[in-house]
């Protein structure tokens, strides 16, 4: 296998750093280490800066809120803005779960089936077909947006979450197919499939009894990926839904983009919006690792 392309979904690559033969401690290596840690810490702080501003501002009130003094800690901590932000975002928060969970599950199943066929139950021209599927992942969605509005209306899909679910599932097929194809190609030996075939196992039986049981790492990757992209999407949401029936990014934009925005509530809202995806990344990240390593960048 050459290194095959892959938008490896975000992930914490696994295996701990390999242990190297210990070398003698020299002044040079001490300095090197100090520089390395200094750099790592510096970037750690830089990366955390925006999160810090979000957090402290969301607990401020009244005249403390403002661009100047944004780095100061609140003199008086209050959760009022969190309450206000939740009032504004609550309904769309629930709706976004109704969107992102089905999208993650359905896309993953479709991706698993496609990936299996394209890697282990191939048909003539499978590679060409795969390339055509893959292209769908990279297109700028503006290039389909104008007729997309019309076609979902024509098909009769109700506006809002149902429309967005359909759209995210469809445009999620390429990446899920890619992840599973690469995953199966590297983790499921061809021989197992062949052995099954000799025993007379058909496509669906092979998929259900041989493939699916070992697919968990792949599912973790696609579920996280699709959940995150459906949750964070703004482009489809702004074109195909509105504040009344749309996901949380629309509601947050309405809260934060208002004419006289309540900055503390906007920042609390931005944090509320980010919590589910952060949870997924930080907590589930570990399970994600194996799948990523097997399914993506692979030498």
């Amino acid at each position: 296998m050459t290194t095959t392309t892959t938008p490896a979904p975000p992930a914490t690559p696994t295996p701990a750093a390999p242990r190297r033969p210990r070398r003698d401690i020299t002044p040079a290596s001490v300095t090197g280490r100090a520089v390395r840690y200094a750099l790592l810490l510096f970037f750690l702080i830089v990366v955390l800066m925006p999160a810090y501003v979000l957090l402290v501002t969301s607990f401020k009130s009244g005249s403390e809120i403002g661009v100047t003094g944004q780095w100061n800690l609140p003199q008086r901590w209050t959760t009022a803005s969190w309450v206000k932000a939740w009032d504004a975002l609550g309904p769309s928060f629930v709706r976004t779960f109704q969107l992102a969970v089905p999208v993650a599950l359905i896309s993953s199943f479709i991706g698993a089936a496609n990936g299996f066929v394209l890697s282990r139950w191939r048909f003539p021209g499978a590679d060409a077909v795969f390339t055509l599927i893959l292209f769908g992942m990279f297109i700028p969605y503006q290039a389909v947006m104008i007729p997309l509005r019309e076609i979902v209306t024509t098909i009769g899909v109700p506006p809002g979450i149902p429309t967005l679910t359909l759209v995210h599932v469809i445009y999620g097929i390429p990446i899920c197919t890619l992840i599973f194809r690469n995953y199966y190609a590297t983790t499921v030996p061809e021989e197992i499939i062949e052995a099954g075939r000799v025993d007379g196992a058909g496509l669906l039986r092979t998929f259900a009894w041989i493939i699916l049981p070992v697919s968990m790492p792949g599912f973790v990757v696609t579920v996280i990926w699709q959940f995150t992209s459906a949750w964070n999407d703004y482009l489809f949401a702004i074109f195909l839904s509105n504040t009344r029936n749309g996901p949380i990014t629309i509601a947050l934009n309405a809260l934060a983009g208002a004419q006289s925005p309540d900055y503390a509530a906007s920042m609390a809202g931005a944090l509320i919006t980010s919590l589910p995806t952060l949870f997924v990344y930080v907590v589930l990240g570990r399970w994600f690792i194996g799948g990523l390593m097997a399914g993506s960048v692979k030498s």
Binding site: P91, R95, Q98, L99, P102, I106, F109, I110, A113, V157, P158, P159, G160, I161, P162, T165, L166, V169, G202, L203, L204, R244, N245
Partner: peptide, 28 residues
């Protein structure tokens, strides 16, 4: 028989899709 099963699977996926579509419909 595989073909028929595959067809059923395809229908199943479609059903899942439409079920999900109905699930979130109360907003509209």
């Amino acid at each position: 028989r595989f073909t028929r099963r595959a067809a059923i699977a395809a229908v199943g996926v479609a059903a899942l899709l439409s079920a999900a579509a109905c699930g979130g419909g109360d907003g509209g």
